[in-house]
Structure formats: structure tokens, C-alpha cells
Nucleic acid binder design. Structure first.
Length: 922
RNA sequence: GGGUGGUUAGCUCAGUUGGGAGAGCGACGGCCUUACAAGCCGUAGGUCACAGGUUCGACCCCUGUACCACCCACCA
């Protein structure tokens, strides 16, 4: 066994074995447990957020698998319509061509090629994380089977009148040339202007002043609106305005939508280019004049001068022209929300087009109820409010996209534009009785990616076939996801699953936070603070890291800044920490519902933790291999106090880890495990075995008992830790299992530990706590007096009770070794003790004689510090206990506790001040 | 405008039904003590954002304020 922990040498070895032996597939007859992976983009690569999410899922999966549950982790990838199409279009662009030159079919072939090229990347990275999904069931949202599910859902929703086609105002992305849903629009505040224009009345009797942030849309105005109760404009309602630049006459209408107190109280109405105006237009039956093309340049319906102009060029021209005409009243600076496409980043336009919609009202009602009545639970709970508020105000969902990459909509049109929905052209003809003389063409559009991922929980299990897997694993157990896609994905899954399965998709939604950098900044290429999980596992040289972070950067200044910042933060690059350390870091940071700030310092600490476990195991192996470890039932063994103590502590650790896993508090689970392994097992237990194992006179029964406990506790601890740190535990377990006579091929198939309260020896725990207090007391003197650790001390114990005496007598062996003692003497009378440095354990005094090597002044200083603390504590307790209200109102056990504390601190105060007097008297 | 989360040691974070705050890293001092210097032993460090209130007692419950982050919303 290597002296130090080398993660790279064990990780790939074990992963290959697990996978090739089929350990990830569901097995056994236990209750089903199932998690559906949120399918990552097929052509994507793993980022820190994935790493976090997959690590959480894998811990849950491994834990439940080890509990004997019939466990399925369904894996797969998403075709990610817009994102993937954009990537391939960019590739074509660098190759000097574009998708239109290629044509639809060739372009789609090219995307499939790209998927084949890059599609395995993310799944390989998933394996590096130790993820244990059933790879044999891997699915892709555009594979054949899944397409059948998507088609089925579309057709049935259409037949049930929950999908319809309509011409409406949608969010139009003029760069990508597609409609996008409300959710894909991100509105941020930006600085802009508010222009005030003078619109003349048609009869020449005056004018109105309208304010707008979008001058270029004025060419499509079809009314000016005022509030019906606005006295200023009462007389004008019903009159006409002559719209400047166009010469069109448009009416002045009254509508409650207008806020009297904002601006001039007059609003230009452009129904084809603003969502509010659209509603107003419908109410007043106004014409809708579209002035844009798909590119958001001005179209043929505007005066010739402006045709073909980009919207922002036209804006300038129109403002200048109105100014020229004396119609520009004023321009103000104005901050406004600008809607941009989340993918393209360009300003989206409200645009009139034909699109397909899902009618969401009834679907959403059911989806709300399933959370209200507790069928589905969000963890943490506050996300339910977010879910409710969105669901209760949900809009119809625009599901058609003018893209080529995606599920093509199963709808056909005849020459008159009549629409037919079916699985294929042949089926259309059959279903609707259309012969070959009628020409049909399929709808050009594809479905929103989220429409297909909305079927993920049941589509992956074979629906619409009623497969065994579907029956067994649906509804799934828990969905692990980020809050950012609750609306995009979670809500849609709940709606669609309830409708088609008449059951929920999952019982629990575990919502985790976002992974940020150590200062809480979002990780982004432009900030240059991105960490790659694989680099944390394998390590990366500084130069490679700098190159990675700055590659493809266009702005030299930004590039230089990022390079400088990276060199400063990682002067030696990033060390190879291994998967287990990375995973453990994620778990330790995974507290409820808050974003996590990832600090490389933390991962280093957990790499050290892995190393600690490695070395502890090494110690166990050294002391147990080829030795009698008490596994033969015929041979008697005897447990020491330390053995009985660690077994009890193990039960408590098991309970804490399980509690953490059951409540999705992986931070608490990992903390409990860390403390048990490092503090209890390594710092105390292993040290306590040394005086036993090194004692040449030790009885065989005791040696057997200690070795037995060493290996059995280690073996159980490894199983306890396995879901969190799969690789190192497997490596160590393979060796440990033989020593502990434990059967099984792999730790991942072994049973998860179950705490047994009967194994908790409370008396042993109390005795060890006493022992620890005594040792720490002596160490503190040694530390503060600067006494060399190797120097053996003679100590005296005074004024202890019979319990102290018993504990001392029983633990001489442990005490001498761990505190490095020369001699131990019990004194009935404190006066017999030589002048000493003193520590207290309750009433028991521990004296370390000053003689020769202890600094008198230092001891006085130490005592004074201690006395000051005690005095403070004493007066606080006195004050509290002299408060009648406290004594009368507080529960008696609390009062009693405070009284005992006071007695203790008064006694300590007295003892230590006596001690101080003695030293001073010298 | 409405809503959610956060504010605890120098940094990153825990804190279980209210009974005088913990960890890791960092700092300081001492150690090559036969598993481990990726380690061991010890020490220091906090007005729990602020102001009220409830209570015998508040990091914890209530009200308000400030700041940070996020979500939702149609103000031209």
C-alpha cells in the first residue's frame, strides 16, 4: 500500500470494475428508489454546478442502494435545441458557410455529427465524478423511443384541445429568428431615454404630447390612449390624431390602462409591438400594423425612407425627423427594463406570428394542488411559494420554435392552410380521409426543448408502453435540481406527468444552490473565475490554467486582467485533489437552499481528510495483518474501555450521518462523519490502542478484542463513508473486509450500517470523557509551560472521589502513554502535593510538580487568566440565581443545572486561588 | 411595486423544540512522539448587522431599519 494517498491510481480502476460488472443496474427486491438525472446538454461539458448536483445524486443513490433498495439512477442527455443549434451554426460560420446554404436536412445531419463527436464528453466526465447511474439505460431526448413519447403527448394534448395554434404577439428573437417563451426573456435595467413627441390633432385644433421609449415603433401606432377619467383630455376622446411621418389618422381612445399621473397621461398605442398595447388594441378593435421584419429591420408598411433600416438606425432617423418638424418636445434620461433573449443576448421584440401554444390553466391547477396537498414536497420548503406564485399566474406556453434542431411538430397543412395533426403524413391522410391529390406540407417548426424534457420522468421509462420499469420506478423518489429551472422544467414536468400518468413525477424536489467562487461571485468566463471540476480532480499547471481561462478572449485588457488574477490566486496551479475530496467539499457546503461559495482551501482540507483515513487504515493494517483479529468464534476476546467507547461512538456517528442523508443535509452528514473519523477514531481511539498493542505482556484476549474492534469499526466506517467518498472507501475496504471477515465483492453492494442503541455503552463513554479531560488538562500545562512533549512527567491526583479513583486505577495504562507520564500518585490530602502547576477535572486536582523545570511566573499568569474566567462565570451565575424571577419561573432542571455550575465554578475558583497563593508565598 | 433568502471568529460556513456560541482554513507558540509534517500538541480570536418588543432568560420568537443576493410584475 502506498505510503500517501494517491487518488488517481485508484479511481479509474474501481470505476471500470463497477461499471463492467453491472453494479449500477437496479437489483434486489427492496422498495424501488429512483432518481432521474436532469439531463445535461448532450454536447456540453461538466461545470461546477453539474459536479455539485451529480455528487449529491450519487450520494443519495449509493446510500439507498446500500440500504437494499431496488435503485435506479436514470441517466441521459438533452438535445438542447437552441444551444446546440447555435454551436453548430458558429462552426459553420467559421467554415465560411451557414445553415441556409446547407439546407435543413444537411444541417440536421451536421448537428447529429457534432453530437457524435462531442456527445460522449459529458458522460465521460460524469464517470470521473464516480457517478453510478445505470448506463445501460442511457437515453437522449431525441432518440427514437423518446420521439414517440413526445409525439404522443403532442397529439393527445391537441386532441384534448389543450394545444392550439394562434396568431399572437410573442417574444421574438431577431438574431435567432425564433419565438421564445416568457421564461427565456431576461429583463435587466438599462439606461435609455424617454422621448416626448407632439402629435397634432387631425382638425388642426391643437396637439397632444406622448412619451415613449421606443420611437421607432411610432410608425405602427394605431391610436393614442388617455384615461377615461382624465379631465384634461375628456373633450378629445373620439377625435383623431394625424400621425406624423405617416400622415395616417388615428383615434384618441379612452382606456383604464393609462395612468393619469405618469408622463403626460397620453400613451401612443402600437398593438403589434407592445404587449400592453396589444391588449388595448384587442379591446378597442384597433388595426395591428407590423412594422418589422424577422430581423427587426423596418418593413414595407412604413414610409419608404425607413424601409430596410435597422430598428436603432430608424430610431435615430425618426427622432431627427420629428425634431426637424418641430414635434420633439423633449428628451429625458430614463432607466428602463430591456428584455433580452437569454441565449442570444439581443433585445427581443414583441412580434405578431403564428405559434403553437399549450393551454396551461387546467394543467397548472392540478399541479398546484399536488404540492398544496403534500403529494410533492419541496426541500427547502420556501421554494413552494415561488412555485405557487408562478403557477397561479401562469400564461399559455408558446411551444413552437423556428429552429431546425429539435422535435419537429407533427402537424401538416394543405394548400388552404388547414391543419392536420397526426404521427405521420400517411396517418394524416388516413385519419382525415385525404387522398394523394391533396398536397400536404409538414409544419416547419420544432418544439421547445422543455416540452420534451417535461416528459423526462416517464418518457425515459418507456411510456407510452406500460413497461415494467415504468410500473416499478414511477413516480420517482426525488428530483435534485437548481432553483433556476423550477419554472422551466420542474413545473412543466409536474403538469405533463399529472395529465398523462395521473400521478406525480416525484415525491420530493430537492433544490440546491448555485456554485459560486470563493467570494460569492458567479463563475463566468468573462470574470475569469471559472473552475473546472476535472481540474480539481486531476490538477492543472498554472500555464495551462491561464491558457484555458483566457483562450478565445477578444479584449486584450480583460485577458491581461484575468491572467494576472489567475497567477495571483494559483501561483502553483491547482493540485490534484482527487474525486473523493472534491465530492466531500461539495457535501460539506451543501446546506439548505443557499448558494455555495467554493473555496479551493476547503478541498485541500478534505484531500487531507482522505489522506488521514488512508493513513489510519494503514495503521490498522500494520497492526492486524497476519495477526489474530478475534474473528474466530471459538476464541475468547475481551474489549477494553477504549473499544467499548469507540463502538458506542460509531453508533452515534451512524445515526447522525443517516439523519443527515435522510433530511438532505449532506453538510451535517459529512461533518458528523469527519468528526468521527478524525477526532474520535484517529485522535483518540487509535492512540488508545497503542498502549495495548505495544504492551508485550498484554493478554491474548485483550489483543484479540482490540484488533477485532480496530478492523470492525474501520470496516463499518468505510461503509458509512462510501456514498460520500466512493473510491477511497472501496480501495481500503477490499483489504479491510478480509481482516474483518466480511463477505462481498464490492463495498457499493454491501449493506449500509444501521446504528444499534444497545451497542452504546454510556458508562464507557463517560469514562473516556473523564480520561480525555485529564489528558487534555495535563497537555495544556505541558503546552503552556513549554515542556517538551517527550519529557515524562510525574503527576499527583488529589481530592478526587471514589469514582475518580476507580477511573484512574482502571486507566493507568492509557493515561501514562497518552499524557507521557513517568509516575502517577494518588493523594488523599492535597497538602502532600509538592508545589505544582494545576488543572481541574471537576473536583479532581491534577498536579504537575514545578520542581526544577516549571516557570513560576508563567504558572501564575496562567492561573490568573483562568481565575479571571472563573470569576466572570461565577458572578454571572450568582446574578442569575439571585434573580427570584428566574428561580421561580425557569424549569427546575434548568435552575438545578445552573446551581451545579455555580458550585463547580466556585469550587474551582477557590482551589485555583489557593494554588496561586501557595506559589506566590514561595 | 410585491416576494424569498442572507448578515455569527481574519476568511468560508454550522448552530437541533429559547437555558451565555462551534468547525475547517488562516494566525500565534511548541513538536521529525515507531499511521499520518497532506501530521501531532497547545493558545488566541465573536456586542451573533442595527433598534425595539415578548420572556425569568433571545443567535434562536415578533415588529421595524440598513446592507447584500435572488425571484416575480405591463408603467408608456
Amino acid at each position: 500500500m502506498d505510503k500517501t494517498y494517491q487518488p488517481s491510481s485508484i479511481e479509474s480502476k474501481w470505476y471500470q470494475q463497477w461499471e463492467s460488472k453491472g453494479y449500477f443496474a437496479p437489483q434486489g427486491s427492496g422498495d424501488p428508489y429512483c432518481i432521474m438525472i436532469p439531463p445535461p446538454n448532450v454536447t456540453g461539458s461538466l461545470h461546477m454546478g453539474h459536479g455539485f448536483q451529480e455528487s449529491i445524486m450519487d450520494a443519495l443513490i449509493r446510500y439507498h442502494r446500500m440500504q437494499g433498495r431496488n435503485t435506479l439512477w436514470q441517466v441521459g442527455t438533452d438535445h438542447a435545441g437552441i444551444a446546440t443549434q447555435m454551436v453548430v451554426e458558429r462552426l459553420l460560420d467559421t467554415a465560411g458557410t451557414n445553415r441556409h446554404e446547407l439546407g435543413r436536412d444537411k444541417f440536421i445531419d451536421r448537428v447529429w455529427e457534432w453530437k457524435e463527436e462531442s456527445g460522449g464528453h459529458i458522460t465521460r466526465q460524469l464517470r470521473r465524478l464516480g457517478a453510478s447511474p445505470d448506463w445501460s439505460r442511457e437515453r437522449f431526448t431525441m432518440d427514437e423511443g423518446f420521439y414517440k413519447s413526445v409525439q404522443e403527448v403532442f397529439i393527445r394534448l391537441y386532441e384534448d384541445k389543450l394545444i392550439y395554434r394562434g396568431k399572437r404577439l410573442v417574444n421574438w428573437d431577431p438574431k435567432l429568428h425564433t419565438a421564445i417563451s416568457d421564461l427565456e426573456v431576461v429583463s435587466e435595467e438599462e439606461k435609455g431615454h424617454m422621448w416626448h413627441f407632439r402629435y397634432p390633432l387631425a382638425d388642426g385644433s391643437g396637439d397632444l404630447i406622448v412619451a415613449t421609449t421606443r420611437p421607432e415603433t411610432m410608425l405602427g401606432d394605431t391610436a393614442v390612449a388617455v384615461n377615461p377619467s382624465d379631465e384634461r383630455y375628456q373633450a378629445l376622446i373620439g377625435k383623431n390624431i394625424t400621425l406624423p411621418l405617416t400622415g395616417r389618422d388615428i383615434p384618441i381612445i379612452a382606456d383604464d390602462y393609462v395612468d393619469k399621473d405618469f408622463g403626460t397621461g397620453c400613451v401612443k398605442i402600437t398593438p403589434a409591438h407592445d404587449f400592453n398595447d396589444y391588449e388595448v388594441g384587442l379591446r378597442h378593435d384597433l388595426p395591428m400594423i407590423n412594422v418589422f421584419t424577422d430581423d427587426a429591420t423596418l418593413n414595407q408598411s412604413v414610409p419608404e425612407k425607413y424601409r430596410g433600416m435597422d430598428r436603432y438606425v430608424a430610431r435615430k432617423e425618426i427622432v431627427a425627423d420629428l425634431d426637424e418638424l418641430g414635434l420633439l418636445e423633449k428628451v429625458e434620461d430614463h432607466v428602463l427594463k430591456v428584455p433580452r433573449g437569454d441565449r442570444s443576448g439581443v433585445v427581443v421584440e414583441p412580434y405578431l406570428t403564428n405559434q403553437w401554444y399549450v393551454k396551461t390553466e387546467t394543467l397548472a391547477d392540478a399541479a398546484v394542488k399536488s404540492v398544496e396537498n403534500g403529494d410533492i414536497n419541496f426541500v427547502p420548503k420556501q421554494y413552494e411559494n415561488m412555485y405557487f406564485s408562478w403557477m397561479r399566474d401562469i400564461q399559455d406556453w408558446c411551444i413552437s420554435r423556428q429552429l431546425w434542431w429539435g422535435h419537429r411538430i407533427p402537424a401538416w397543412y394543405d394548400d388552404e392552410g388547414k391543419v392536420y395533426v397526426a404521427r405521420s403524413e400517411d396517418e394524416v391522410r388516413e385519419k382525415y380521409g385525404l387522398d394523394q391529390s391533396i398536397a400536404l406540407r409538414q409544419d416547419e417548426d420544432v418544439l421547445d426543448t422543455w416540452f420534451s424534457s417535461g416528459l423526462w420522468t416517464f418518457g425515459t421509462l418507456g411510456w407510452p408502453e406500460e413497461t415494467e420499469f415504468l410500473k416499478t420506478f414511477h413516480p420517482t423518489s426525488v428530483l435534485v435540481t437548481g432553483f433556476d429551472i423550477i419554472f422551466f422544467w420542474v413545473a412543466r414536468m409536474i403538469m405533463l406527468t399529472l395529465y398523462f400518468r395521473k400521478e406525480i413525477p416525484f415525491h420530493t424536489v430537492y433544490v440546491h444552490g448555485l456554485v459560486r467562487d470563493s467570494h460569492g461571485q458567479k463563475m463566468s468566463k468573462s470574470k475569469g473565475n471559472v473552475l473546472d471540476p476535472i481540474d480539481l480532480i486531476d490538477g492543472i499547471e498554472l500555464e495551462a490554467l491561464v491558457e484555458k481561462r483566457t483562450s478565445g478572449m477578444q479584449v486584450p485588457k480583460l485577458k491581461a486582467k484575468i491572467e494576472k488574477q489567475t497567477r495571483k490566486e494559483f501561483p502553483d496551479g491547482i493540485a490534484a485533489y482527487g474525486t473523493d475530496a472534491l465530492r466531500y467539499t461539495y457535501y460539506s457546503l451543501a446546506s439548505t437552499g443557499r448558494d455555495i461559495n467554493f473555496d479551493v482551501g476547503r478541498i485541500e482540507g478534505f484531500r487531507n481528510f482522505c489522506n488521514k483515513l488512508w493513513n489510519a487504515s494503514n495503521y490498522v493494517f500494520m497492526n492486524t495483518e497476519n495477526e489474530d483479529c478475534g474473528q474466530n468464534p471459538a476464541d475468547a476476546f475481551e474489549l477494553t474501555l477504549a473499544d467499548r467507547w469507540i463502538v458506542g461512538r460509531l453508533q452515534q456517528a451512524e445515526a447522525a450521518v443517516i439523519e443527515g442523508l435522510n433530511t438532505y443535509r449532506l453538510d451535517l452528514a459529512s461533518q458528523a462523519l469527519y468528526d468521527f473519523i478524525w477526532k474520535d477514531y484517529c485522535d483518540w481511539y487509535l492512540e488508545l490502542t497503542k498502549p495495548v498493542l505495544w504492551n508485550t505482556d498484554e493478554r491474548m484476549e485483550v489483543l484479540r478484542g482490540t484488533r477485532r474492534t480496530l478492523v470492525r469499526v474501520l470496516e463499518t466506517t468505510l461503509r458509512l463513508a462510501h456514498p460520500l467518498m466512493p473510491f477511497i472507501t472501496e480501495e481500503l475496504w477490499q483489504k479491510t473486509k478480509q481482516l474483518a471477515c466480511f463477505e462481498g465483492d464490492s463495498i457499493m453492494l454491501a449493506r449500509y450500517p444501521q446504528p444499534d442503541e444497545a451497542k452504546v455503552d454510556h458508562a464507557a463513554i463517560a469514562d473516556v470523557e473523564w480520561l480525555q479531560a485529564v489528558i487534555v488538562g495535563i497537555r495544556a500545562i505541558r503546552g503552556e509551560m513549554n515542556i517538551a512533549p517527550a519529557r515524562q512527567l510525574d503527576v499527583f491526583f488529589c481530592r478526587g472521589n471514589s469514582e475518580d479513583k476507580r477511573r484512574l486505577d482502571e486507566n493507568m495504562q492509557f493515561l501514562s502513554k497518552l499524557a507521557q507520564l513517568g509516575s502517577i500518585k494518588w493523594l488523599d490530602n492535597a497538602d502532600q502535593a509538592p508545589l505544582s502547576a494545576t488543572s481541574l477535572v471537576g473536583h479532581l486536582e491534577i498536579h504537575v510538580p514545578l520542581a526544577g523545570f516549571i516557570d513560576k511566573d508563567a504558572e501564575i499568569a496562567r492561573l490568573e487568566k483562568e481565575l479571571a474566567k472563573l470569576a466572570n462565570e461565577t458572578s454571572r451565575l450568582k446574578g442569575k440565581l439571585s434573580n427570584e424571577k428566574f428561580v421561580n419561573n425557569a424549569p427546575t432542571d434548568v435552575v438545578e443545572k445552573e446551581r451545579n455550575k455555580l458550585a463547580d465554578s466556585e469550587s474551582a475558583l477557590q482551589k485555583l486561588s489557593e494554588q496561586k497563593e501557595k506559589i506566590l508565598a514561595l
